[in-house]
Design a protein around this nucleic acid. Structure first.
Lengths: 341, 341
DNA sequence: TGTTAGCATTCTCGATATCGGAGTGCTAAC
DNA sequence: GTTAGCACTCCGATATCGAGAATGCTAACA
């Protein structure tokens, strides 16, 4: 069932959220009365009703009110409904995205830096990994007598390498043949299918040459291929938000740092669905994040891959600002990928 | 001038350091008397003398004693003098280094993980960067019509890449010529000298072909080269040490986290000289690290490059354990590099 | 001369008490 | 439906107190 608030309730609620976000202090009726032309007593009555509806909470019997999780949820739904596309206040970001001299990955990294600064929260970029791009070329480059470098390059420009030892009983001619064969087999194969394909070919004995070096060369290549599957992430700005009053409790502070260092935070971010997702407080299912909200947006790279931009901050964050920024950045990154293809 | 302590002073001092390291509490005369067969009063007299010599401190007029920076310094010098090479208690590490299936960089990373766990401190691995290795090969790999990947490979097996756009007025034949020329010029040139050499050649007009594409291709290559100069680092375990009592003060905790996130901590580690270096408290010149010690050891990669293994922890750390471990790990990494060359 | 017992003194730390301020809920009047 | 007034609650800052753990000093002892 849908709860409908009166206009004045709406106003009281919005004022409380805004004020609480600004000050981190429970909001009392008297301070609200300055913004409305009714008396504190009237506002108290409204507050009492809003509390009964589940939108507000008290920290103790005679404290002011703070928004509840449900309250935030309501507040955010309203924001998501009328997000504008205007870019007011995004000057730094526009300047960044207009810069043609910076490579895409660098640009994403810098956008994350700006995002964490602008929001005073932790900002995270996740993926995309190269798992779904296709093999473009496989190479072997001799470095010294006993050593060579194997290289794998994908159609999207990802590169992985691995050094290998060359024992004396391998002949260079033979090695080159192996590489040629691998190229023949693997070019245009999606990274995800490489291992499968190699095993298939080996089992069916189509490639006798490969077998001879199977243990060393082929395994090394498989290892190089598997590196593509690692998700690339970048996280920054956690120290900003630690100065927020919600982290005045030293245990919370420590637990949060640990959550970040253990990469637990990525579990939440990874699980986010397409489009914008907002996970408030207990919705995160991690104890040390019960006072935090994670806002994420995925972006599409065109190649079936998705990346994610996220902001982690106290539940008491400037949701409008955060959501607008994330959406803006995600769109622009998508555009970067489009331009390249 | 060299201060000589009596045997009993030596004993009192060592007991105080060990006890303080264990409990993080100032050590009183009565608790020491349990380990020595003299009365607390006698020990108090010794303590008083040791304080006058600058080895001990009080936290307030009637508190027990804690070691001073000078005291730690003395204690550490003694440890450094008689480090044994035995590997007692290093079982986990030995197991790791014996594993032939793991690549060097992965092994270093895992050793750093173990190091931070074993010491409850932050462990850091720095470098080596590829700045002093030599160009082995330069490549251009077409990806799509408008796009190509440039690759730079060094004799030590380092690889850097950069994607570039190919405008329509460039001809593939021409590009290949440029690459050939670059190879001719640069192979065997140390990365550090590449930029200089290119500029010299361009100025002296020896390479007309290059000029035509100077803005795009050559600059992109220079950018790829410059990536080699970036130091590679790995840091882990900062959340362990935050639970130590010296970080009970929330401001210290926050400031320390910030120091780590701002990479300031690397300034200290980078500046460490050859062999084992121990920087205690204020020797670090960073306010948020005044209660910390940084222990580092460099290791030699054989190619003129050096890497560093470091541990950052409270001044009250188990110095013997930390120093032995770091030395052991550094030696083994050096061995890994030797085996490869 | 070195060691030790005894004691006044100092300081920390946790528990308890006090008090002003901010805010609420309720009642009664407008 | 709104508002003034008032009793009540709770927080947080500050002060006070006492127990406990050390110390330094003095004087006695071997």
């Amino acid at each position: 069932m849908k709860i409908v608030l009166t206009e004045r309730q709406e106003m009281v609620f919005k004022l409380i959220v805004d004020e609480y976000v600004r000050t981190a202090e429970p909001v009392g009726s008297r301070s609200l009365s300055k913004y409305m032309d009714v008396s504190p007593a009237t506002i108290r009555n409204e507050m009492s009703d809003l509390e009964e509806l589940g939108f507000l909470e008290k920290t103790h019997t005679s404290s002011g009110r703070i928004p509840s999780e449900q309250g935030y949820r309501y507040y955010i739904e309203k924001i998501l409904k009328d997000i504008d596309d205007d870019t007011e206040g995004f000057f730094e970001f526009e300047k960044l995205f207009e810069n043609r001299d910076i490579q895409r990955d660098e640009m994403i990294k810098e956008a994350i830096n700006l995002l964490s600064q602008a929001t005073n929260c932790t900002a995270i970029s996740l993926g995309p990994n190269a798992y779904h791009s296709k093999v473009k070329k496989v190479q072997l480059i001799p470095l010294r007598d006993t050593q060579a470098l194997i290289l794998v390059i994908t159609n999207l420009g990802y590169v992985e390498s691995k050094q290998i030892m060359i024992s004396e009983d391998m002949e260079m001619q033979e090695l080159i043949k192996v590489i040629d064969l691998l190229n023949e087999l693997l070019v245009d194969t999606p990274i995800a299918k490489v291992s499968e394909k190699l095993h298939y070919e080996i089992q069916h004995n189509r490639i006798k040459e490969l077998l001879k070096y199977r243990d060393t060369i082929v395994d090394s290549f498989i290892e190089a291929f598997s590196k593509f599957a690692q998700t690339k992430y970048y996280l920054t700005g956690s120290s900003n938000m630690l100065y927020q009053p919600e982290f005045n409790d030293i245990r919370k502070l420590r637990d949060f740092i640990q959550t970040i260092e253990n990469n637990e935070i990525f579990k939440i971010v990874e699980s986010s669905t397409d489009g914008i997702s907002v996970k408030i407080g207990t919705e995160n299912h991690i104890t040390s994040m019960q006072d935090c909200t994670v806002v994420s947006s995925t972006y599409d790279t065109g190649g079936g891959e998705k990346g994610t931009i996220s902001v982690v901050g106290p539940t008491r964050m400037d949701y409008r600002k955060v959501i607008r920024l994330i959406q803006y950045i995600a769109k622009h990154i998508e555009k970067l990928y489009e331009e390249e293809s």
